[in-house]
Computed example of a mutant assay.
Amino acid sequence: MNVATELPEIYDFLLKFILIGDSGVGKSCLMHHFLNDVFRDPSPHTIGVEFSSTLMRLPSSTPAATIAGSRIPNSKTLKVQLWDTAGQERFRSVTRNYYRGACGAVVVYDITSRASFNSLSSWLADARALASPDLAVVIVGNKLDQEEDRQVPYLEASRWAQEHDVLFMETSSLSGENVEQPFILLARSILLAIESGQLDPDKAGSGVSYGERALRRVSSWGSGLKSTHRGGKCC
C-alpha cells in the first residue's frame, strides 16, 4: 500500500477530462477504482456531475537532462481534472455544459449491453461538438468481469473505434483490470500533442493550460505519481 506524504509539487499542465456514456455502464466505478484502487460499493447513480482531480507523472518525449555526468530521464507532471457526468437523458442539458474546455473524453459503454454500445455515436458527436476542437477520446468497454454475458464483441468495438479515429480498450471497474489505462492513454496522447506542437496550451479553447507550483498530497503509483482531490456533487 502506498503512503501519501505532503510534498511541494510542480505540475506542468492542467488537463480537463470528461467521463460520458449511458447510465449504469460504470463510469463512476471506473473513476473511483482508478483514483482509490478499490471498487466503489455501493455505487449510486450520479446526479448531475461529480468532480475529482489527480496528479499524473508521465515520461516526456523531450531529451533527458544530464546532471553530474548522469542522464536524468525527463518527465512531466499533469494535473488532471475528472468530470464524471450523469448518463440519464434528463440530465443531458445540464451535463453538456461541462463538456466545454475538455481536452480528453472517456466514453464508456457496457460490454453486456448492446444498447449502450449503440449510443456511442451520440455521445461522441456531442463531445466533439462541445469540447476542445483537439479533443482526444478513448472508448472504454466496461464490465470485463461479466464476459459470459457479453453482447458486444471486442473486434466489433475495436473496428468501430478505428473508424471513428479514437482510442479503445476494455476494462473491469469491479476487478480493477485496465482501470488506469484509459486515463494514461489520454494523458500520453495529449502530452505528445503538446510536445510535438500540435496542441498549444496558449490557444483559447485548447482544453489545456500551463500549471503552477502548489502544495499537493502526492503518492507514488506505477511509473508515476497520483494524488486525489475529491469534490462534492453539483447540480
Rank of each mutant, 00 (worst) to 15 (best):
T5A: 15
E6L: 13
E6N: 13
P8Y: 11
E9Y: 14
I10Y: 10
I10M: 12
Y11W: 08
D12F: 05
F13L: 08
L14C: 08
L15C: 05
D22T: 12
G26R: 07
G26F: 08
G26P: 04
S28M: 00
L30G: 12
H32E: 05
H33A: 07
L35F: 14
V38R: 15
F39N: 07
R40W: 11
H45P: 13
T46D: 03
I47K: 10
I47E: 07
F51A: 03
F51T: 09
F51D: 00
S52L: 10
S53D: 11
T54S: 14
T54W: 13
L58K: 11
S60R: 03
S61E: 00
T62F: 11
A64N: 15
A64K: 04
A64C: 07
I67R: 14
I67Y: 14
A68Q: 12
S70I: 15
P73I: 13
K76Y: 05
K76N: 04
L78T: 12
K79N: 06
L82K: 07
L82Q: 08
W83C: 00
G87D: 02
G87W: 02
Q88W: 03
Q88Y: 06
R92T: 07
R92Q: 09
S93P: 00
R100V: 15
A102W: 09
V108G: 04
R114I: 06
R114Q: 09
A115Q: 15
F117H: 02
N118T: 13
N118L: 13
S121R: 08
S122V: 12
L124I: 14
A125W: 12
A129Y: 10
L130T: 14
L130A: 13
P133A: 04
L135F: 06
I139P: 00
I139M: 05
G141L: 07
N142E: 04
N142Y: 10
K143S: 02
K143Q: 03
R150N: 01
R150V: 02
P153E: 00
E156V: 15
E156C: 06
A157M: 02
S158N: 15
W160N: 02
A161N: 03
A161T: 09
Q162D: 13
L167Q: 03
F168D: 00
F168I: 04
F168E: 00
M169V: 04
M169K: 03
E170F: 04
S172N: 03
S173P: 09
E177S: 13
N178A: 13
V179W: 04
E180G: 12
E180C: 10
Q181M: 13
P182C: 07
I184A: 01
L185I: 11
L185R: 14
L186I: 07
L186Q: 00
I190Y: 02
I190M: 03
A193P: 01
S196E: 14
G197E: 01
Q198V: 03
L199V: 02
D202E: 10
K203S: 12
A204K: 15
A204N: 12
S209M: 04
S209Y: 02
R213P: 12
A214T: 10
R216F: 05
R216L: 06
R216P: 00
R217K: 11
V218C: 04
S220W: 10
G222N: 05
S223T: 14
G224S: 02
L225Y: 11
S227A: 12
T228G: 06
H229N: 08
H229C: 08
H229F: 11
G231K: 04
G231S: 01
G232C: 05
G232H: 10
G232F: 09
C234D: 08
